[in-house]
Design a protein around this nucleic acid. Structure first.
Lengths: 194, 194
DNA sequence: ACCCTACCTGTCCGATCGGTCAGATTCCTG
DNA sequence: CAGGAATCTGACCGATCGGACAGGTAGGGT
């Protein structure tokens, strides 16, 4: 026990996250995860008491970051739809795209897992805040396309392209630019492009 | 055999599609699908020879439509990024959002199924066409956010909201408007907003 | 009446699932 | 060196998976 953070546990978390994102939580098997990590299924269940615990450990850091971002948005009210929120959101996607992909696409079927439940509540809160501030269907869809599309692009890039993020800074800038463009006309984003 | 299209088979297709979209193909069980349809697992395997065949039947019509839309886009070349393509795409999403959700999010893990393979090839072809016509990373991401975001919004609406599409016409108009806005600056869409 | 087809079912099978447990191995610490 | 915690493993369990198979039932055409 020399390491502060166990290397096997951390590698398992990484591999498991890829499996959960690729074939879904229900479809992923502890055996396959263990095999890719060079361990046995028993060793996986030694580091994480259950499959659900493994999922929780895999997504929890991302949920914490999401909580910070969304809380920073809802706390300051409607004036918060500025460049800072967009940049925080894009950075969250860039550093935790697999986790976001998991609780975006499997959030409903995994609602009984506390960590996922927390993520669902956060997204729900963001949606409610948007619904309150943005009255028209058009603007609400614009908001959804902006944030959802950004999330999709990163996941799709990871799926269909061999080298998705070779130019990370340019990708980040392009995402911020795109979202800002879509949110510029929204009533809630008076200071967006200023 | 009075019906031209078997009612049980069609209802199974519908229910199975919901299960595949919600918990993934690997996680969905024939038992659960059969139970929701009021049948036994054996009856499911009578109408569809295997689980994969059920998936293929569930997504195949949507893949056919996708082929038409993408073929119409790539055939006419770069000038095709007009309102007509956007409208066709939005209509495809509105009428087949569950199917699109399936082969967008599980296309890689289900690549050995012919129908999914066909969908993957189509999306790949669309991506290649975009990559050829759109040189800069910024514009490519803009394109991905537009189409991916539109797909995401409909799926997310189905997941988080109880009544997602009460105002279908307005939703359609808003999606077309949003995508057109994002694609207006792209070099390939000279006739987009004209 | 007959059969034939469509439709549905229960039973059984091998494989795999997540999870438990007892024991082996390693490795730091005193 | 001794000992104890940390790590890892194989054997095993009940449950469930997709699928094969034989049989049962209802209806329509001859």
């Amino acid at each position: 026990m020399l390491c502060v953070v166990n290397t096997s546990a951390e590698e398992l978390r990484r591999i498991a996250l890829q499996h959960f994102a690729r074939i879904g939580f229900a479809g992923a098997s502890l055996n396959a995860i263990a095999e890719e990590a060079g361990l046995s299924k028993s060793s996986v269940l030694y580091h994480y008491s259950s499959k659900e615990a493994l999922l929780a450990a895999a997504v929890e850091p991302a949920v914490d970051r999401l909580a910070e971002v969304i809380e920073g948005f809802t706390r300051t009210g409607r004036g918060a739809m500025d460049d800072e929120f967009v940049q925080r959101f894009v950075d969250l996607l860039l550093s935790h795209r697999l986790e976001v992909h998991v609780f975006i696409n499997q959030g409903q079927s995994l609602a009984d897992i506390p960590a996922i439940q927390r993520a669902n509540a956060l997204i729900q809160r963001l949606g409610d805040a948007v619904t309150d501030h943005i009255p028209t269907v058009r603007d609400r869809i614009r908001f959804g396309v902006a944030l959802g599309g950004a999330a999709y692009v990163l996941v799709a890039a990871a799926q269909w392209s061999s080298e998705p993020l070779d130019d990370l800074d340019e990708t980040r800038a392009a995402l911020v630019d795109t979202i800002t463009t879509l949110l510029a006309d929204l009533p809630v984003s008076s200071a967006a492009t200023a």
